[in-house]
Amino acid sequence: MTAGLRKRLDRNGLGLLSPPLLLLLVIFLAPLLAMLPTSFQPYIPGKGIGEGFTLEHYAKALTDSYYLEIIGRTLALGVIVTLTCLVLGYPLAFFLARTESRWRPWLMLLVIFPLLLNLVVRTFGWIALLANRGLVNDTLKALGLIETPIKLLFNFGGLLIALSHIFLPFMVLVLVGVIRNLPRDVEDAARTLGAGWAATFFRVTLPLSLPGILAGSILVFVLTVSALVTPRLLGGPTYKVMSTLIYDQFLQLLNWPAGAALSFILTAIAVGLISLSSGMARRMGAGT
């Protein structure tokens, strides 16, 4: 390498950046690009990937009622889990952001702890809670509220509860960060101008936390529609969402082309939403 080139690579940082960038190009972008042609190839049962070009996997995913139901279910789960996390998470985040308790760091750790705990373990906890002979059904029976156990596994309700639990910490941490950065003076100003707590909250605090609400919601939605472990374990092999469908196409049915097409549809939803929201955040940041 000539001295001039070395100097240039140092000044523009590409010398330092090339190992991490090379890693991403070879182990991230290349595999994704290599999967793109697969999604347009025909699938021959028993033999695997065939020759030729076809749009049938995309067409089927977007027209077939079986696929549409799974996509619809995935999106519905995403929306409802997001709303649940928002409604449960905002008050908790508000408390954690504003409390002057000296326990605050430890309360924050209680939020972070489930996040660090192995996802399979957390999901397993929900199996123990939601099973026919799990804690929830036993408690309800002991209280005399039900006679036969209610079905909480392998359906929408169970997934909703468990996924809300699993993604609640993400929402809370994003909101705590935003609420802590709200200027307290501005709320005090509203109060001196005659706003009671409700008016102060709905006219000042809540509108100013909108960027955090947006960021947290996008995050939770994308994580929910991408989730594999929890839907697989709580939904079983029959109650499917998009990611478990992709899992089955690749590992059970060996229908890679269909799985690849579904992967790109799921990616389009996740990445599309993220870029849409960062555009929105930029506009909100730029002001009225």
């Binding site: 595999p31 994704l32 290599a34 594999l228 990611s243 992709i246 992967s263 799921l266 996740a270």
Partner: peptide, 13 residues
Amino acid sequence: AFPGVVIGVALLQ
């Protein structure tokens, strides 16, 4: 931003 399962299947192939 990419779903883990998508990275997983892409790497599988």
